[in-house]
Every structure is written in C-alpha cells, then in structure tokens.
Amino acid sequence: MFFTKNLRVFLIVGGLITMIAAIYAFNPAFALKQMNGLEFDAQYVFLFRHWGIMVGLTGLFIVASAYKVAWREPIILFSFLEKLFMVYLFFSNFFNPETAYLNAKFIPFVITDVTMCLYTLGYWYEQRKSKI
C-alpha cells in the first residue's frame, strides 16, 4: 500500500509546495515576474492576492492534515478538486491562440497539480480496496 504508507510525507511535501502560492498574496508583482515571467497589472491585485492566500492556506491545511488525521478526508477532497480544476484550465486552454503563450509559464504548476491529483487517486484506490 504505497500511497497510504507514504501519505504523511506526500501531505507535508505537497502542502509545502502548495504554500509557495502565498507569495502572490503578499507580493504579487514579484511573484508574477519571478515565478511566471509576467508583468504585474495593478487592476487585478485583489484577484492575485485572493488566489495567493486561498491556495497558500490550502497548502497550510494540507500540511496540517498530515498530523491531524480527522482533517484529512475533507482537506484531501478540497485540494484534489482545486488542483484538478487548475489542470482542467491549463489543458482546456492549451490550444487557445489567445492564451497559448501563457501555457509554458504554468507548466511547473500543472506538473505539481497533476502529480498531487494522481497520488490522491492512488490513495483513494488503496483505501477503497482495503475496505472491500
């Protein structure tokens, strides 16, 4: 049961990586330039900051769920859905000529989210298999 056995490490590492998004809440201009190679547009500062704190807190709760077992299932479900939607957004816009130049800038984020979604599916599969 690989996924179940390594769940705590997965939650800690995945949560810490997810927490990096909090930089968008505190310094969106720096984050956009350094992490995405994009120019900052002050018109969207509330959106960037909201997204950054939401995803940053998601990462914090993922790490917390490594230690607080009662929190795991709802946090893993929320995290899975949030990350799956990001993956959907990336691939649904992959061939859109208006956003194609952005796709390369988000590849590290998508790789992280795909990895976490696949690990979550593996964990859920093992949990379902062990209950049968």
Rank of each mutant, 00 (worst) to 15 (best):
L60K: 01
E82T: 06
T58I: 03
I20C: 05
W71Y: 14
Y88T: 02
E126W: 10
A31G: 10
A64R: 06
I111A: 15
L81I: 11
L32W: 10
L81D: 01
P74E: 10
E82Q: 08
F85H: 10
P97L: 09
Y125S: 09
I17S: 01
F61E: 02
W51S: 11
V114S: 05
R128W: 13
K129D: 10
L118G: 07
Q127P: 00
F80Y: 11
L32S: 11
I20W: 02
N6Q: 12
V13M: 06
Y119W: 14
V55K: 02
F109M: 11
I53Q: 01
M116T: 07
T115K: 04
A22Y: 04
H50M: 12
I107E: 13
Y123D: 08
N27G: 03
L38Q: 14
L47Y: 13
T18E: 12
L16A: 10
Y67V: 02
K83V: 00
G56F: 00
S65Y: 09
I17D: 00
S65W: 06
L38S: 09
N93P: 05
S65C: 15
S92H: 12
A100R: 14
F95V: 07
R128I: 15
M116Q: 12
I23V: 14
I23W: 02
A100W: 04
G14K: 08
Y123C: 05
A104F: 09
V13T: 07
Y24R: 05
C117E: 02
V55I: 14
G52S: 09
F109W: 13
L118A: 13
Q43C: 00
D113T: 14
V114F: 04
T99W: 08
N27Y: 09
V63T: 06
N36W: 11
F80V: 00
Y101D: 13
F30T: 03
P74W: 08
M35L: 15
M54G: 01
K105F: 03
T120W: 10
S92D: 12
V69D: 11
F94H: 13
A70V: 05
C117M: 07
N96H: 11
V13A: 14
N103P: 00
W51P: 00
